[in-house]
């Protein structure tokens, strides 16, 4: 060890990204608990006045709206040209380089090779999972709000949701809404395990970064087009 390690501080997750992350996490938790109770009410109201299920459903709807707003906000935020949270980050599977890095991550997970890609923000495999998660979110919004709108079949939301009703019966919507919840729970298990693995065992600093926004790393984030990121996530052109 002749030369000292050079750690660079990157501001990877800006405040809106962190807020969205935690609103997502909280609403997923609330939605899963209340959703489970709506599907299988193990609670029991003492008197007809208790309005227990009414409140559980109310909280579920509020959390649903919170998740929708959070996800939409995050989508809009990704329109900014930012190399850690911008939309470009989300399609590694469209480039050869991306696939190479996904392969690297898979080799890492299957204990074949411990090397991880030079990604300061998301790793390409995680990002692919997030794209999948966003798809599940879309399905959950469609089925959830379609079910919600059925209380007012002449309402605006019911009209907007018309394609969903053509696609699936109400019972079908209930079914896929349940399955969606379990898929998200599987994602959460994966997600929490992976951040533990990459932070605690691989010293990637994932866990603190979602609180503070900063990552300290010796890596340099390089894009396939020969672009690099500065500490604030802005693109810098690198001479080849």
């Amino acid at each position: 060890m002749s030369e000292p390690l050079v750690f660079k501080r990157y501001y990877v997750w800006e405040l809106p990204v962190r807020i969205c992350h935690w609103v997502n996490a909280l609403s997923i938790l609330i939605l899963s608990i209340t959703g489970f109770l709506i599907g299988k009410p193990v609670i029991a109201g003492v008197s007809p006045e208790s309005y227990l299920m009414g409140w559980v459903r109310f909280v579920h709807f509020i959390a649903g709206y919170a998740l929708l707003i959070s996800v939409v906000t995050r989508l809009l935020w990704s329109l900014r040209d930012h190399c850690f949270s911008g939309w470009r980050e989300y399609f590694p599977f469209l480039t050869r380089e991306g696939w190479r890095e996904i392969g690297m991550m898979l080799k890492f997970y299957f204990f074949i090779d411990r090397k991880t890609p030079d990604a300061v923000g998301h790793n390409p495999l995680a990002v692919t999972a997030y794209v999948g998660l966003f798809m599940i979110f879309m399905g959950m919004f469609a089925s959830g709000f379609a079910l919600y709108a059925e209380h007012a079949p002449s309402g605006v939301m019911h009209t907007v949701m018309k394609p969903v009703y053509i696609l699936l019966s109400t019972q079908g919507l209930h079914l896929y809404h349940h399955i969606g919840m379990w898929l998200i729970i599987c994602f959460v298990i994966n997600h929490i395990y992976s951040v533990w693995l990459l932070d605690v065992k691989e010293k990637g600093g994932e866990i603190t970064s979602i609180f503070s926004g900063y990552k300290y790393t010796t890596k340099v984030h390089v894009f396939s087009e020969g672009k690099e990121c500065d500490e604030n996530g802005c693109y810098i052109k690198v001479k080849k």
């Binding site: 065992k201 010293k203 790393t217």
Partner: peptide
């Protein structure tokens, strides 16, 4: 996976460089 991983040594950031 975690069990196997926890048996491994933590990564030394120096290896990265």
């Amino acid at each position: 996976h975690g069990l196997v991983s926890s048996l491994r040594k933590d990564k030394d950031p120096a290896e990265e460089t």
